[in-house]
Design a protein around this nucleic acid. Sequence first.
DNA 1: CGCTTTGTTGAGGTTGATCAAAGTAAGTGG
DNA 2: CCACTTACTTTGATCAACCTCAACAAAGCG
Lengths: 206, 206
Amino acid sequence: MAYLDYAETVQTQATPIVKLLDAVLYHQGDDATMAYRIKSGVVMAYQIYSGGTRQITGFFQQDDIIGLEVDGAYADTAVMLSDGRLQPISRRQFMQDPHLQNELYANACEQLRSAQSLVLSLTRKCSDAKVAEFLLHLARPRRCGKGRDLIVLPKCRQDIADYLGVSSETVSRRLAAFKRQGIVEFPDRRSAHIIDFPALEARAGH
Amino acid sequence: MAYLDYAETVQTQATPIVKLLDAVLYHQGDDATMAYRIKSGVVMAYQIYSGGTRQITGFFQQDDIIGLEVDGAYADTAVMLSDGRLQPISRRQFMQDPHLQNELYANACEQLRSAQSLVLSLTRKCSDAKVAEFLLHLARPRRCGKGRDLIVLPKCRQDIADYLGVSSETVSRRLAAFKRQGIVEFPDRRSAHIIDFPALEARAGH
DNA sequence: CGCTTTGTTGAGGTTGATCAAAGTAAGTGG
DNA sequence: CCACTTACTTTGATCAACCTCAACAAAGCG
């Protein structure tokens, strides 16, 4: 992405809109008119399949772009896991702006890579490593800080379970184990606080 | 993709090049100067991770575009599973041609969806369903034909296993079971021939 | 035809799903 | 403010699926 210059693009865009906790950005199946660049907050996207199974397709944060579709309808539903600010990107803007097209393309490639890496994590690792990696994934943007920041967890354990493809009981057990081992603290059910990064990374298999 | 017109794009492209069985299109880590549109043949792409684990990132066929990278290096290695013809697409072409950019973007989105659907298959399904779905995936382009065509299988069972995230023994057992049940025939180790599509689809969970 | 590689088949152990029950937290109405 | 409800989480016990290890068969190759 180094060869792109976004300055112009950014300036021509509308100011961010505010979305509150639990707000739905778009529904799976709706006409995909907008994409969103996340300025702050955490977003979760998921797909519902016939038979009731649900796959969480990702957790997104600052600078991620969601709602990418080539045509027709949104492939997933996106909801806010916290309050946040989002920059809407219309299809009209997209079609007119080559810089934006490049950026969206880059973002799609990045998400593709990330999905492939997810495949690896989910098929090769034991549940212990999956949960560890999940926590590290959510902690990623905050890693640079002084490490005291809280990680925003999904609304319920089942959300984590649906992302990792394990049962909610297993999520519980692994989180409890990390707590017992002094690697992670849980001030409440919606937040986590990593004490020992190296230990968690070791468990994630890094 | 309905709003795109490829006619012009296609005409300006070079004629396809021929690649033979086992030919390597590009290596993971190499400078990503070319993408390829597959005109015929089957391509397998994989990543090697530290620790020796390997993830097959996909099997590609006619009209798929591989070698998509935003910057720098190829994320995976691509090899021919059969003889085939490929249309090279240079970065220069890509940068100059808006139609081509759109097509590549569409392709990236499609691969993203396909990767997400793979995540679902690999985490939610039992090995039986995984192997069934794998066979159906490879059979996809031939489905419309009279159904007597042979499916080109990867070079060894381990390739399938690495794609599905199961052991090669499990692949063997599941394939043997399908054969025993009269759903699939195996003229030799490199090819399969689906007898009973509905039964296989039922096992894949469709 | 030996030798090597790959595939198949069997036995046993481990992981994680499932089922079930008890524990927590938050909301609701009296 | 407190029972009561509801939804979620945690913990335990059981069981099935799949991995691992190992032996054997088949195929490829000099």
